[in-house]
């Protein structure tokens, strides 16, 4: 873990994304604040629909055209404001500075092009060179993600590879240009558990080699504990709690985080029914005046339903923030 006072690798301040539909406006990303340092893995945790993927897509400015847009805030990569870059400047950031690993290995490779072709495409855009060199570098990238017989695989089409292999190829595309940040959007959701574990170990190793920062988006608190240094917990478009993994696991400040941790199945310890969180998040079109988690919260009182809780320092040292009246009200 690196805690330096220098400019963080990625710094997000007051980021707000607005979606306008006929039903009204809502904010899948509502006032996000977080930072990512080199060599660090930041876990972004939350249920489906909490705005995790929207957060990821807003960082590379690839929100769905027309429907969604960033309305305010700042995204700084090594101090450089990404939101004020021109479209062509932003294209150079994508793939070279910030790479992404998408959710579904079955569909995230283009079936019409060879694996090598899809890796060298990124290289050609960001670090051009003669064809043979590019091919060598594509093979090298495949070797780094531990694809067996990379010299052979480089000429394969995605349909000739297994799911785990394809996700490795997606990883190879991501690391090929040596990015500073990799955003991994639930990269292991559709993989077998064993393949999943291998893939996560691989990500960790790559990070140790290159010192890149990883933003790991997941709904699985179990993965977070193994992989991440710090965590951001999202609920209904808001960050409800953030801090180091140790701190949050030891002493979750927000009842939602507490409930998520309790819902992770354990190998040891007490048997019995798995804990779940009753209810579901409010529909996006309804913006409740108070804490959005209040209707599902066992500890909610009347203030929770009427006033939005402020983000406060839970432990008094700036390492652990939470938005909950239970913490703020004391």
């Amino acid at each position: 873990m690196t805690h330096t006072q220098e400019t963080p690798l990625l710094e997000v301040r007051d980021l707000r994304v607005e979606i306008s539909t006929k039903a009204g406006k809502f904010f899948p990303v509502n006032g996000h604040n977080f930072t990512l340092n080199s060599g660090e893995t930041l876990g972004v945790v939350g249920e489906s629909g909490s705005g995790k993927s929207m957060t990821a897509m807003s960082l590379v400015r690839l929100l769905p055209k027309h429907a969604a847009r960033v309305t305010s805030g700042s995204i700084k990569l090594e101090g450089r404001e990404l939101l004020s870059l021109s479209r062509s400047e932003m294209r150079k950031v994508r793939g070279r500075d910030i790479a992404m690993i998408l959710q579904d290995p079955q569909t995230s490779l283009n079936p019409s092009f060879t694996v090598g072709n899809q890796i060298t495409e990124a290289l050609r855009l960001h670090a051009p060179g003669p064809r043979s060199t590019l091919r060598e570098r594509a093979i090298e990238a495949l070797r780094k993600v531990k694809v067996a017989a990379p010299e052979h695989r480089v000429d394969s089409y995605p349909s000739q590879l297994s799911g785990g292999m394809r996700q490795r190829v997606v990883g190879a595309i991501a690391i090929s240009c040596a990015p500073k940040v990799i955003i991994a959007d639930e990269p292991t959701t559709s993989l077998d558990v064993t393949v999943q574990a291998q893939y996560l170990r691989l990500l960790k190793e790559l990070q140790e080699d290159t010192g890149m920062g990883i933003i790991f988006i997941t709904h699985d608190f179990g993965i977070v504990a193994n992989l991440c240094h710090r965590i951001v917990v999202m609920y209904f478009g808001r960050i409800v709690e953030s801090g180091t993994v140790e701190r949050i696991f030891a002493k979750p400040a927000h009842p939602y985080t507490e409930a998520l941790i309790a819902a992770v199945p354990k190998l040891h310890g007490h048997k019995g029914r798995l804990r779940t969180i009753p209810g579901s998040p409010p529909p996006q079109s309804e913006q409740p005046p108070g804490c959005p988690f209040a209707p599902r919260c066992e500890m909610a009182d009347t203030r929770c339903f009427t006033e939005l809780p402020p983000t406060v320092d839970a432990d008094g040292d700036g390492e652990h923030l939470a938005s909950c009246w239970r913490v703020a009200g004391q």
Binding site: G95, R96, L102, S108, V170, I173
Partner: peptide, 12 residues
């Protein structure tokens, strides 16, 4: 489809 998103993410 996702591979179109991935192409954009690559900076294409």
């Amino acid at each position: 489809v996702e591979y179109i998103k991935l192409a954009r993410v690559k900076g294409v």
